[in-house]
Amino acid sequence: MTAPNEAAPAPDAVPTAAKPTRLAPIVTLDAKFFWDASDREEFVGQQCGACGKFRFPPAPMCAHCNSLDTRIVQLSGRGKVVSWIKPIHPPAFGFKEPPTVAVIELEEGTRFVSNVVGIAFEAVTMNMAVEVCFEATMGNHKVPVFRPAQ
């Protein structure tokens, strides 16, 4: 017996995107602004209102001048790959094929762990320029990932 959702689509049906299997982020109060922005496909960060330094991971105080004056600003979304790996075992949860996991050094000077997409793992090189794009997760969220800069 075939379950209803396994029935063959009508020949003229528009193919629907596969349901996302990527895990949604665990959202802490200090980082909620970031993940909320990601859901809107915006890549934002914290900048100190007093000394202008960017910081990551999110924190309520500037480590350079200890100011609480924190601004949430749009980041350029541009950066370079400074480390990249392919997790083989155990298989990365939520991925059908092993993802390229990378540390991205952003133009603003902070670093961000993400995926590099749209390029084979073997073709990634140290300091390769990348730019942000977004991918869907379970639970209707989106997270920033990076592709080779256009």
Partner: peptide, 22 residues
């Protein structure tokens, strides 16, 4: 480590790998 989870880096091996490659 919270910042690694949605990207398929959920084990000590993946974090150590990312830290070791540079």
């Amino acid at each position: 480590l919270l910042w690694c989870i949605p990207f398929g880096a959920m084990t000590p091996g993946t974090w150590a790998g990312l830290a070791g490659r540079p």
